[in-house]
Amino acid sequence: MADAPNSPGPSGRPLGRPLSPHLQIYRWPITMAASITHRATGVALAGGTLFLSWWLMAAASGPDAYAVFAAAAAHPLGQFVLFGFLWSICFHLLNGIRHLAWDVGYGFKVPTAKMTAALVYAGSLILAGGAFVIGLMVRGGLGT
C-alpha cells in the first residue's frame, strides 16, 4: 500500500512528509488562469463543432429540420450555448495569437505576459458581449 503522505510512521507519529502542492494550493496568477482557460475553451469549441454540424445539416435538409434547430437555438439554453461558443471562439482566437507570438519569441517577460493575459480576457468578453448585446438589440437574441 502506498503510504498517504501524513500517515503514521513506525513510531505512530505522522511522518510529516512534505506534500507536493497542487492546483488548490497555488495562487492563481492570471497567466496560469489564461493557460487553463485556453485548454477549456478548446474543449468547449470541440463541443461547439457538434452545434455547427447540426446547423449545417439542418440547413441542408430543409425547412422542417431547420425549424427544430432554430427552436433549440432560440431557447434560453440554446442562447447560453451560442454565447459560450462565441466567447470561446473569441478567447481561443485572441489567446492563440498570444501563443503564436510566443512561438516566434515575443512577449515572454512576466509583466508583458500578465498584461497580454488580461487583454485577452477583457478583449474576448468585450467582443462576445458586444456581439450578444447587438444581437439582442437587433433581433432579440443571437440567432433568433
Binding site: W55, A60, A67, A70, A73, C90, L142, T144
Partner: peptide, 16 residues
C-alpha cells in the same frame, strides 16, 4: 463568427 452571427437566426432558405 461573423457569418454565424449574421445567419444563425435567418430562415432555412436564406442560410442555404
Amino acid at each position: 463568427a461573423a457569418s454565424a452571427l449574421a445567419y444563425v437566426g435567418a430562415d432555412q432558405g436564406a442560410v442555404a
